[in-house]
């Protein structure tokens, strides 16, 4: 139907994933970290869609739906955790929650 090369789609997914990953590593604010994880998940879903389109199979899209479901559940639980964290520590700094330090 179109002549979009598969590499282009996968590269886009890769770039988005890496950007999200950098963000997780540099941010200290937990909400930003959560957003970054969403970017990464979205990029992974994009890769599935590209692959599914390439082989003209529905499986890629199904995997995207699963990832979507998972992201939704993750965000809800993650936000609840953030609320608790903020409630206890009065900050969003993830470095403050280092009680597991060995």
């Amino acid at each position: 139907m179109s002549s979009i090369p598969m590499e282009a789609g996968l590269l886009l997914a890769g770039i988005l994933f890496v950007i999200g990953m950098v963000s997780v590593m540099i941010r200290r604010n937990v909400i930003f970290m959560l957003i970054s994880v969403e970017i990464m998940l979205n990029a992974a879903g994009l890769a599935f869609i590209v692959a599914g389109s390439h082989w003209a199979q529905p499986d890629g899209q199904i995997m995207f739906i699963f990832i979507l479901t998972m992201a939704a559940a993750e965000v809800s639980v993650g936000l609840a955790l953030i609320l608790q964290l903020y409630h206890h520590l009065k900050t969003l700094d993830s470095d403050a929650a280092n009680f597991m330090k060995g």
Partner: peptide, 27 residues
Amino acid sequence: ILSLVLLAELVYLVVAVEAPGTVSVSV
């Protein structure tokens, strides 16, 4: 630096694959 290394590897893996096709039909 880490991310660039990872990205470079991903690009290499994507490009190195033989017979890269195009996206064909809509599902």
